[in-house]
Design a protein around this nucleic acid. Structure first.
Length: 549
RNA sequence: GACUCGUUGGUGAAGGGGUUAAACACACCACCCUCUCAAGGUGGCAUUCAUGGGUUCAAAUCCCAUACGAGUCACCA
């Protein structure tokens, strides 16, 4: 029996030979230095913030070198794959502006010449290459049952040996063709493992674009390549797909780092040229003193939706991720305030080689605050409305009812060279402007935050005097001068310096008078510019509010 | 247990043997500005780069050990 016939028995019904597949996936025609990257998620649930980071980096490197970034779905674990997992990934990523040059575009469709881009649809391809390995005696059928595997594992643990199928544990490695066929005919279930040519005691040098060159023991484990359900393992699918799709740079999480010898060996025995690898550190979190990887299960902030629900602008999240990806991005943004992320050159060398970046919420919020401060009043209005439409019916209705009025509010201290920065996220907005809407102002029991002047009579007195002289048409300077005049009239210091020097000479200062006016109109002791607030509310409404006291 | 990587301030980090280097950003503190807040301005915040040894005229930077942290060791990805 020829090796070819033998391979046909082990993996029957394969439509094409590996040589045919090689021809079907020709070299890409791309300029020198163009990177072909891929984002290759498993469709197992919501999009993790780390996945956003990885896909972002994948896309950036491809784009900045004039290459291709494609989306490949790794669904070889049938048990964990979920319904509509593919579209859920695509949609979430899309929301953040992440798109792919080729690859899967929906549950059933793809674009590009190297498809299908969903691994369960490439079964024949993997088998064709598995057959190649069997023909070349580089892979074999293994009949080890779950129970036997468990026994081996226990034995290895007990004697403190390395776990895995290698050396004498690789029982079926040298079964003859005849024996193998006999057992198959006997109905025994089997899988395909490689015959690892490596030795654990051989050190090999592996290179990672981020971590540098390191020494690792050669792989000597007879890794499974085709599972009993006929589907390949991640390792095998990775080698075949990235070869056929001509990936030049595999960028993935560093949980894969220790599989590198395995993967390199796979490429070698398959006769493929290995891609370059870049393993990025995970996002971590400080959980009561212990630093650990952000977890899908335990950490709500691991889901990108957490931040969109919180009203953090998507752009801010991307800006933050860019600083995590390359710490010099921030400095660059400083120098190029109008620059887009797309103009920044990312560099593998600037990626953190450490065991993880702490996901720093205050930093995210700071970036977000700055981002929102750079928006125009119309943009803030649109974005707040977008947020409110999903999460705050009451705010939404007010914004819709008073669009121009709302924009005036958003414009307070926004026109200046350094705009006001008081919204970290869109969910902050309502808490800061509610008093500008009578509907909200008149709704609940008010908690007036009076400061140094608390006497009701005195407050009345100040307000009565003030409303007499207040005019909507005053410019800011005359507006303030009037308050100062009022101070002089009532025995308060109109000049803060004079007040600080001799506080005992006065009943109080302009600050106290202003505060009374501020609190009377808004209930709050801290607000944006009072002049603007009064002007936008208008004299009549201000008067009404004074009269409530 | 084995293998690998890592360890610079409260946080993200720059710097990879030497002219005065621990940059920058966030956070924090103080002061200034100021009608409040936000913003802005000024200054402070690691005499030291996990620890212990070495190499060197010279080390955060190179080497070795130790400690700690992270990741991986499936017919999961």
């Amino acid at each position: 029996m020829t090796n070819k016939e033998y391979a046909d028995i082990l993996l029957p019904g394969v439509k094409h030979t590996w040589e045919e597949y090689e021809k079907m996936y020709p070299e890409r025609d791309l300029p020198e230095g163009a990177m072909v990257t891929r984002y290759a998620p498993s469709p197992t649930g919501f999009v993790h913030i780390g996945a956003l980071l990885t896909s972002f980096i994948d896309g950036r490197f491809a784009k900045q070198t004039g290459g291709i970034c494609y989306l490949r779905i790794e669904d070889t674990d049938q048990e964990r794959s979920i319904e509509n997992g593919v579209s859920s990934i695509i949609n979430s990523l899309n929301e953040f502006g992440i798109t792919f040059d080729e690859g899967q575009v929906s549950e059933t469709e793809y674009k590009g010449n190297y498809g299908p881009y969903i691994q369960t649809e490439r079964g024949d391809i993997y088998k064709a290459y598995a057959k190649k390995l069997i023909e070349e005696d580089k892979a074999y059928a293994s009949f080890l049952s779950k129970e036997e595997l468990e026994k081996i594992r226990e034995e290895q643990m007990k004697s403190k040996q390395r776990l895995g199928i290698y050396g004498r544990y690789a029982k079926d490695r040298n079964l003859s063709k005849e024996e193998t066929i006999a057992r198959i005919n006997n109905g025994e279930s089997y899988i395909i493992r490689i015959k690892s040519p490596g030795s654990f005691f051989n050190k090999i040098k592996v290179n990672d674009l981020i971590k540098g060159t390191m020494e690792m023991p050669e792989n000597d484990i007879d890794e499974v390549i085709i599972k009993s359900d006929g589907i390949p393992t991640y390792h095998f699918a990775h080698a075949i797909d990235d070869h056929l799709m001509h990936t030049t740079h595999v960028i993935r999480g560093d949980e894969w780092l220790s599989s590198l010898p395995k993967h390199l060996q796979l490429f070698e025995i398959l006769g493929f040229k290995a891609p370059k690898y870049a393993h990025i550190a995970p996002l971590t979190k400080n959980d009561n003193g212990t630093i650990r990887k952000l977890s899908k299960r335990k950490d709500p902030e691991a889901a990108v939706s957490y931040f969109t629900e919180d009203g953090v602008p998507k752009e801010a999240i991307m800006l933050y991720l860019a600083t995590v990806a390359n710490s010099n991005f921030e400095g660059w943004l400083d120098q190029n305030p109008n620059g887009s992320i797309d103009d920044f050159k990312f560099d593998f060398k600037k990626c953190s080689a450490s065991s993880g970046s702490l996901f720093d919420l205050p930093k995210l919020y700071n970036i977000s605050k700055n981002y929102i401060s750079r928006l125009t009043k119309d943009e803030v209005y649109d974005r707040t409305l977008e947020y409110a439409t999903k999460y705050d019916e009451e705010l939404k209705e007010l914004l819709l009812k008073y669009p121009d009025y709302s924009k005036e509010i958003f414009n307070i201290e926004r026109q200046q060279k350094k705009p006001r920065k008081d919204y970290e996220k869109f969910s902050d907005v309502k808490g800061q402007i509610w008093y500008m809407f009578d509907e909200l102002f008149n709704k609940e029991d008010k908690n007036y935050e009076w400061q140094s002047i608390t006497d009701k009579e005195e407050i009345k007195n100040i307000l009565d005097n003030y409303i007499e002289i207040y005019s909507e048409s005053d410019d800011k300077e005359t507006w303030f001068n009037k308050i100062k005049e009022l101070c002089d009239k009532l025995g308060y210091a109109s000049d803060m310096k004079a007040y600080k020097e001799n506080p005992d000479n006065f009943k109080g200062s302009v600050a106290d008078i202003s505060t009374v006016i501020r609190v009377a109109t808004t209930t709050k002791s801290q607000t944006p510019d009072l002049y603007e607030i009064l002007r936008i509310l208008g004299k009549e409404r201000v008067k009404e509010r004074f009269n409530l006291l």
